[in-house]
């Protein structure tokens, strides 16, 4: 599966009001091309909801529902069961942000995964609560300055490291878990296709660079995603029933410094902070690849 295999027709219209350069609309548009029109979409409160579904407008060309912040997992479970009862084959997909996944939605998500509901859960991860003005979440990386972890005299940005949500989902031993990056189209599309073709609970986790919240030039969105992968800040792999089946390894690993350079949220980093972040990346790398970086 490659870019050229994608259909022309889009199920997500232009005219939405995402910030210029936001990665999220490109992510959902391309995913929807593969999911197809027999799909029903659920979104909790987040940027995606607000830029694509502000009443009375809608950018989606499929049935689309807005549910509460904390219950994406529960909603997609119920709808999937209702369709099964009716004997209709409909793909049920939830698109939630990192806040709606790592923090407030984790209980409903974990329940749906444990029951192996027949649905796809997509977390688009922009590493903070962007819709409400850039508050830290469990996905925010160490040291990032957000409005609730403002770098200054008291604290140097967020004190804790990013939680490994994909690993938590892998531990549920569900049929499919994959991490994706829009900067790697072939890998991205193959994983979306695989998710569509798999039955049971599927979890897709995609990094979604946010020029507004990360404070970088909007033309650099894809570059940021690529550097996140190349530095090991973001790792790409697939797991089936808890076993890792495929890992992408960057050809050349770049230092995290390269990745954080162009981003305002890391502007205050000292050499010690860079080292701390690098140590975290290296630990993660060693766990995943079974070798020292």
């Amino acid at each position: 599966m490659n870019i050229k295999d994608l259909p022309e027709e889009s199920l997500f219209t232009p005219g939405h009001t995402a910030c210029a350069g936001c990665a999220a609309p490109a992510i959902v548009r391309n995913m929807m091309k593969i999911f197809g029109k027999d799909t029903i979409v659920y979104t909790p409160a987040n940027c995606l909801l607000v830029f694509s579904g502000t009443y009375p407008h809608l950018a989606w060309k499929v049935p689309y529902l807005h549910e509460a912040f904390e219950n994406t997992g529960a909603c997609i479970s119920g709808v999937a069961r209702a369709y099964r009862r009716k004997g209709r084959k409909v793909l049920v997909v939830g698109f939630a942000g990192d806040g709606g996944t790592y923090d407030i939605g984790i209980q409903a998500l974990s329940g749906a995964a444990e029951r192996n509901e027949d649905a796809i859960y997509v977390c688009y991860d922009n590493e903070a609560y962007m819709n409400t003005g850039i508050q830290r979440s469990g996905a925010t990386p160490y040291g990032a300055s957000t409005t609730t972890t403002p770098a200054g005299r008291k604290i140097p940005g967020k004190l804790e490291h990013k939680k490994d949500m994909a690993e938590i989902m892998r531990a549920h031993e569900i049929p499919y878990v994959a991490t994706l990056s829009i900067s790697h189209p072939k890998d991205f599309l193959e994983k979306v296709k695989k998710a569509k073709e798999t039955e049971g609970f599927r979890y897709l986790h995609v990094l979604s660079p946010c020029p507004t919240g990360w404070r970088f030039d909007p033309s650099k969105t894809i570059e940021m995603a690529r550097k996140a992968v190349d530095s090991g800040m973001w790792t790409l792999y697939e797991a089936e029933y808890g076993e890792i089946t495929n890992i992408y390894k960057p050809k050349k690993k770049i230092p995290v410094e390269e990745y954080i350079k162009g981003q305002g949220r890391f502007r205050h980093f000292t050499p010690e902070m860079i080292e701390e972040l690098q140590r975290w990346v290296d630990r993660k790398w060693e766990r995943l690849y079974g070798e020292k970086p």
């Binding site: 219209t13 232009p14 005219g15 694509s52 809608l58 049935p63």
Partner: peptide, 23 residues
């Protein structure tokens, strides 16, 4: 509460209607 695509005095609403919002 389900809305398909509707043509109204104010323009399109519902499914796919953001197409009318020229950005």
């Amino acid at each position: 509460g389900a809305i398909g695509t509707l043509q109204t005095e104010a323009g399109l609403v519902g499914i796919g209607s953001f197409i009318e919002n020229k950005t």
